[in-house]
Simulated assay, not measured.
Amino acid sequence: MDELSAHLQKIQRPAMVFLSALAIGWIVLPDYRPFCAGLFLGGLVSFINSRYLAMKVRQAADAAAGTGRKKMNLGFLTRASLAVLVVFFSLKSNQIHLISTIVGFFLMHLVTLLLGVAAMIQKTKK
Rank of each mutant, 00 (worst) to 15 (best):
Leu4Lys: 04
Lys10Asn: 14
Ile11Asn: 07
Pro14Trp: 06
Val17Asn: 11
Ser20Asp: 02
Ala21Thr: 14
Leu22Tyr: 11
Ala23Arg: 03
Trp26Thr: 14
Ile27His: 08
Val28Arg: 03
Tyr32Arg: 08
Phe35Asn: 06
Phe35Leu: 15
Cys36Asn: 05
Cys36Ile: 01
Leu39Lys: 03
Leu41Phe: 01
Leu41Lys: 00
Gly42Glu: 00
Gly43Asn: 01
Leu44Cys: 11
Arg51Thr: 07
Leu53Asn: 06
Ala54Asp: 05
Met55Ala: 15
Gln59Val: 06
Ala64Cys: 05
Gly66Glu: 05
Thr67Leu: 11
Gly68Ala: 12
Arg69Asn: 10
Arg69His: 11
Lys70Cys: 06
Lys70Thr: 13
Met72Lys: 11
Gly75Val: 04
Leu77Ser: 13
Leu82Val: 06
Leu82Gln: 03
Ala83Met: 09
Val84Asp: 02
Phe89Val: 04
Phe89Arg: 02
Leu91Gln: 06
Ser93Arg: 09
Ile96Phe: 03
His97Phe: 12
Leu98Asn: 00
Ile99Arg: 06
Thr101Lys: 00
Ile102Thr: 09
Ile102Ala: 03
Val103Glu: 02
Gly104Ile: 05
Gly104Met: 02
Phe106Met: 08
His109Gly: 14
Leu110Thr: 12
Leu115Ile: 07
Gly116Cys: 05
Val117Asn: 04
Met120Gly: 09
Lys123Met: 12
Lys123Leu: 12
